[in-house]
Computed example of a mutant assay.
Amino acid sequence: MATVDLTLDTFEDIVTKEGIVLVDFWAEWCGPCKRFGPIFDQSSENHPDVVHAKVDTEANQDLAGQFGITAIPTLMAFRDGIMVYNRAGAMAGPDLQSLVTAVEGLDMDEVRKQVAEHSASEHAEG
């Protein structure tokens, strides 16, 4: 499956769907981004069931700002609309494969429980 380009208008529709969505925040001028790009593209071919999306931070500065992107490439993983991974830095192919496997193996009932507990504790403090 080819990668999908995301914008502010399409981001929410894509990442809130059921399943796994990997989002690569990148820019044309970024050397590490250019090295990571083919690895990300290969992962999209290896995992057609996983949406591989890209955000050009130059063309989508509002979206990059909304997520506090200060270093690129930054990779985020969403599962069933919940962000479960967020880290800056390029990855090697085996590391990206391990990430996909880890996200596939998540107990989403447990993740939702942790998100609810974290949200409740934030409201109690605030």
Rank of each mutant, 00 (worst) to 15 (best):
W26H: 13
V111D: 00
C30P: 10
H52F: 11
S121V: 12
L75F: 03
D109P: 02
K17R: 09
F40W: 11
A124W: 09
Q66A: 10
D49P: 02
Y85A: 08
I20E: 00
V100Q: 03
A116K: 03
S121Y: 14
E45R: 14
K54H: 11
D109V: 08
P73G: 07
S119Y: 03
A71C: 11
D80V: 00
K34A: 11
A27V: 10
V100Y: 02
T74G: 04
L75Y: 01
E110S: 14
I20S: 04
W29G: 14
D107I: 04
T3S: 12
W26C: 07
A64M: 09
G31V: 12
A120D: 10
E125V: 15
W29T: 14
E104S: 11
Q97D: 14
D56C: 03
F36R: 01
A77P: 07
A102G: 14
T16V: 07
E58D: 15
N86Y: 08
L75C: 08
A59T: 05
S98T: 13
L22N: 07
E28D: 15
R87H: 10
Q66F: 11
P73H: 05
V4C: 07
A92Y: 06
Q61P: 12
N60P: 05
H47C: 06
E117L: 09
A2P: 15
K113W: 01
V23S: 05
N60L: 02
D56E: 08
V21M: 06
D107T: 04
D80Q: 03
D41R: 12
G68M: 02
L106I: 04
K113Y: 04
W26T: 07
T16K: 10
G19D: 00
L96S: 01
S119P: 08
A116H: 07
T57Y: 11
S98W: 10
Q42N: 14
R79N: 02
E125W: 12
R35N: 05
E58H: 09
D56L: 09
A120Q: 08
E18D: 13
A27P: 14
E58I: 12
E18G: 05
G89S: 01
I69H: 02
M108S: 06
H118I: 07
I14Y: 01
Q97G: 07
C30H: 14
V4L: 06
T70V: 15
V21D: 00
F78G: 00
G68A: 04
W26L: 10
F25K: 04
R79Q: 11
R35A: 08
I69D: 02
T57W: 04
T16G: 06
L8H: 08
T70A: 13
L96M: 00
A124G: 09
G89R: 06
V55C: 05
A88R: 01
D13P: 00
L75W: 06
H123A: 15
G93I: 06
I72P: 03
A2S: 13
